[in-house]
Amino acid sequence: MLPKVLEKSKFAAFATALAGEYQVVGPQLKEQSKAGGETFVFGPVTDGAALRMDYNITLLSPKKYFLPMRETLLKYTTVGHPKAEAVMDTRQRVIVGAHPCDIYATWLLDKVFSTDHKDPNYLSRRERALIIGLDCAKPCDETSFCHDMGTNYVESGFDLMMTDIGEAYFVEIATEAGQALLAKAETREAHNEDFAKRQAFMERKQGGFHKRIPVDTKYLPEILEESYDSLVWEAIGRRCFSCGSCNLVCPTCYCFDITDKLNLDLTSGTRERTVDSCQLDNFASVAGGESFREQRSSRLRHRFFRKAKYIQEAFGRKGCVGCGRCDRNCVAKINSVETYTQIAGSR
């Protein structure tokens, strides 16, 4: 399908029109610091003017619309014939402004939640969601290492992809559903100058990203393999709080915990799912009180092995998209680029 051009001045009206039919979620300002720094989150809008398409990165990724931080899976009652009723989120949703790394992460989660056991709650949300991507010309900030992970370009995983060409967005149409969405916008055909501007954007983009990990990341699985007993794990383990923040903000982490919550009548209740973290003290505890990953160092090693080795082996792509959310949120300043660099250097 041929691309279209959407003037920026008409973008808000487009998003507002979508909000009449879908739940539209996109980047918004969460907080402004006294020093002027801004923090963004994905959130629902009814007025497209609230979207901040100039955002750099959000606290949580759009993953929260597929695997919410907390959700109710079912409602049950134990009176008479015990009954359970599944709770499904069937809202039609449009995710606006997802960056390539977050789109890449969604691809991975789709694999995870549809391989072997198909997760109905995840899939119900995912199948009803449309993604309007937004390409980025430079890294979000100095923490990002998406270029090392090869996730700053995506070929698929979106319905529409917008590129900033100055006064307008160059909109690639990837699916028919995307085309139907775009019909709600006042667009025009893309002309030669628009294609040229898009090309100029891509060239700027190529110059805008730099590798930060000294070794080619395709070797990380083997490098990690060799590092199993490295003292680096011990050293960063001493600084780690096991607070779980790194996992909880990660767009590719998918562990969760399930608990039953009683209502006050004590005969009915809900089954709740909450995202979990492999860095927490009790994560690997099993009945009887044993924990098979008691040391902070082994928990940390496990996280890095998941991100750059195990997932790659299981699904054929890296488990880390280099968004840097884990690093930005680590109070102990444990840093992925630094860790991979040290590990590669300590062999």
């Binding site: 949580l60 003290d281 949120n329």
Partner: peptide, 26 residues
């Protein structure tokens, strides 16, 4: 048996350390 940071992340709060403050939540 997990720290306040966990619920802080569930609430999608900006970590106070990012705002130049301190916090015993960890």
């Amino acid at each position: 048996n997990y720290p306040v940071c966990v619920t802080c992340k569930l609430a999608e709060n900006v970590c106070l350390y990012q705002k130049g403050m301190t916090c015993l939540g960890v």
